[in-house]
Design a protein around this nucleic acid. Sequence first.
DNA 1: GTGACTTTGTGCGTACGTTCACAAGTGCTT
DNA 2: AAGCACTTGTGAACGTACGCACAAAGTCAC
Lengths: 224, 224
Amino acid sequence: MSEEPTTRRGIPEATVARLPVYLRALSSLADRGVRTVSSEELATAAGVNSAKLRKDLSHLGSYGVRGVGYDVDYLLYQISRELGLTQDWPVAIVGIGNLGHALAGYGGFATRGFRVVALFDADPSVVGQTVAGLRVRSVDELVDFAREVPIAIGVVATPAGPAQSVCDQLVAAGVRSVLNFAPCVLQVPDGVDVRKVDLSTELQILAFHEQRKAPADPSEAVNE
Amino acid sequence: MSEEPTTRRGIPEATVARLPVYLRALSSLADRGVRTVSSEELATAAGVNSAKLRKDLSHLGSYGVRGVGYDVDYLLYQISRELGLTQDWPVAIVGIGNLGHALAGYGGFATRGFRVVALFDADPSVVGQTVAGLRVRSVDELVDFAREVPIAIGVVATPAGPAQSVCDQLVAAGVRSVLNFAPCVLQVPDGVDVRKVDLSTELQILAFHEQRKAPADPSEAVNE
DNA sequence: GTGACTTTGTGCGTACGTTCACAAGTGCTT
DNA sequence: AAGCACTTGTGAACGTACGCACAAAGTCAC
């Protein structure tokens, strides 16, 4: 009756990054009325290797039944809980341009676990508008606002220029998780997480690989 | 399954993913008139370890000068060339909803290397509209269109439902690089690359880490 | 209860990624 | 021309990730 060295504390980052994919695949299965799923089926739906899926899930606990598979609803709940989606996370979006609009209206937020509680912008002509049912506030009110309504996750949807300043204000408001859509690197103090979503980066990575596919000839480049 | 971790000329995938970041940092430096940069400075700007930066760059060649650093313009060109940005890649966006609108109007495409050549949507009430200077075409015209105007990169900005079907049509049209914004896994044949940009996934990863922070003292503000 | 069958959970070899630390190379100063 | 200050490029060590293959553990039929 001693310590399990692996689980509980340390879930590998690579695993965490895949949990949302499993979650989505499971939701889809649940919607179709599937009650039980094998690692092979779920792995195919998630686009990964089944051994990898099993190892990933084993980090959460032993939620499968040998010879049977995984109970879809139970696994859904366990992954949701592990990801912290059994509670609602208040989200604030800063920068209500084209992208900010799209984000504010995006149903993806509404999916379990996240709630957009405030919109901010620096442009006086945008402040005061109503977007997706929320009044756009001045970014200057950010820190004050956060005193009354805590913000768990800040979304930076501004151009690159003001992004660092906006990020600093989010941090000053107590935000420790930032999702950055601006095309720049954000500097944050220890304890603050930043994740970047970047169209240009993704395109450039695709371009790199595309460039190497030059021979559009199936008979070529089979070996080595 | 040719899921090779490194590319043919031996550039690790992890390195490729960081090249766009270096590129951006270098552009910023160039705009400010900086002519030469050390690995330490560039690494700080890019938010990475300097040894990692040097090793990454060493995969492209020996473009630095010991005792001096890297010539900003020269390195900019070399990375651009490696990423395939010295040519223009024709991009098609499918799904002109909120997100598609934002993408079509996003300057990030125009900057360098990418050109949006066509917009597609399935909704008859959207088809025919002009968005960002382009007429929205019916998605049914996709394959025919691609016969006249080649498409290198297809952007899927539809809801999850039609995403796989849209992707199949892109592949049928000869597209071998897909950027997927739809919240689902796309199945593609060998030789086709898919990269996923997913708001929900990123939020969920942030939520996971957020949940593990918080020694339960939300009132305490990080200050000074 | 027994045995055939199914599927999980994981030990292990391999490959990949990151960081340290330093030799090797470059420019500047004297 | 020699020494010094600086920075790159990389060998080596360590850590992480992946996927195979299989024992363990369960179900089901009878």
